[in-house]
C-alpha cells in the first residue's frame, strides 16, 4: 500500500476549508486535515491555502495566527508544495489594492488589482470560463486546453513576471487563472467548485507531490 500524502488545508478563518476538504476526500485521500496548528503544517507533505473573502481580512487573519513565519520557512526554505486558491492565490502576491493597500506574502511578485472592465462585463467575474493553459505540467495534465473552471472574484493577480502565469482566461482583459513558481502554485478559480475539471486539477496537484 502506497503511503497517502498528508495534506493540510490551512484554516485561517475566512476560507471555505470544508469544500476543499470534501473535494480532496472525494478523490480518495484520507490524510486531509483542516488546521492552523504548527505541528500539522510542519508534518504535511503539501499545503493548501484556500480562500473566499476579502484580501485584508485574509492577510490579517494569517498574521493573527502567526502563520507568516512558519509558512515562509516551509514554502521558501523547505520548498514544500503549496496551492493557493482564489484569495489564497492572491495572498501570494506582493500587495493588493482591495480596500486600501495591503501587503501580501510576496512569494510571487505582482499586485492584486481591481477588475476595471468595460460596461458590458459585470464585476465580479462570476461563472465558468474557458481557461487557456500555457503550461500543462504539472497542474493541468488531465485537463485539455479551454477547459471550464468556476471563477468568482472582483480582483485579479497582475504578475510582474509573465513566466509565472501558467494559465489565463479572457474576460475583457487577460485574467490570470493560474500561477506557478517552483513549488508555489496558485489558482484564481475554485477547483473545489469546478466539477470534474477541478477534481482533475486536484489530482494533478497531489500526483505532482508524491
Amino acid at each position: 500500500m502506497i503511503k497517502q500524502p498528508s495534506i493540510v488545508i490551512i484554516d485561517y478563518g475566512v476560507g471555505n476549508t470544508q469544500s476543499v476538504a470534501n473535494a480532496i476526500k472525494f478523490l480518495g485521500y484520507k490524510n486531509v486535515k483542516i488546521s492552523c496548528d504548527f505541528n500539522d503544517i510542519e508534518n504535511a507533505d503539501a499545503l493548501i491555502l484556500p480562500g473566499v473573502g476579502a484580501f485584508e481580512e485574509a492577510i490579517q487573519n494569517i498574521k493573527k495566527r502567526n502563520l507568516v513565519e512558519i509558512l515562509n520557512y516551509q514554502v521558501l526554505d523547505l520548498k514544500k508544495p503549496i496551492l493557493g486558491i482564489c484569495v489564497g492565490m492572491q495572498l501570494l502576491a506582493t500587495y493588493s489594492e482591495e480596500n486600501g493597500k495591503h501587503e501580501g506574502l510576496n512569494w510571487i511578485k505582482g499586485e492584486v488589482k481591481k477588475l476595471n472592465l468595460s460596461r458590458e462585463f459585470s464585476v465580479p467575474h462570476v461563472g465558468w470560463n474557458d481557461v487557456i493553459i500555457k503550461s500543462k505540467d504539472p497542474l493541468f495534465t488531465k485537463n485539455t486546453d479551454l477547459s471550464n473552471f468556476y471563477f468568482d472574484h472582483s480582483f485579479y493577480f497582475d504578475c510582474y513576471d509573465e513566466q509565472n502565469v501558467i494559465a489565463y482566461c479572457d474576460y475583457d482583459i487577460k485574467v490570470t487563472a493560474a500561477v506557478q513558481k517552483g513549488n508555489i502554485f496558485g489558482v484564481q478559480f475554485h477547483p473545489e467548485k469546478s466539477h470534474n475539471n477541478g477534481l482533475k486539477m486536484f489530482r494533478d496537484f497531489i500526483n505532482s507531490i508524491s
Binding site: T17, V52, L199
Partner: peptide, 26 residues
C-alpha cells in the same frame, strides 16, 4: 462540486461564517 449558494434564515455574520465552514460558497 459546483458552487453552492445557501439562503433562508440568514440574519447575522456568525451564521454566514458557519455556513461557509459547512461548505457554502455564497
Amino acid at each position: 462540486f459546483v458552487p453552492l449558494t445557501v439562503g433562508g434564515g440568514v440574519s447575522n455574520i456568525e451564521q454566514i461564517r458557519e455556513l461557509m465552514n459547512c461548505g457554502a460558497d455564497k
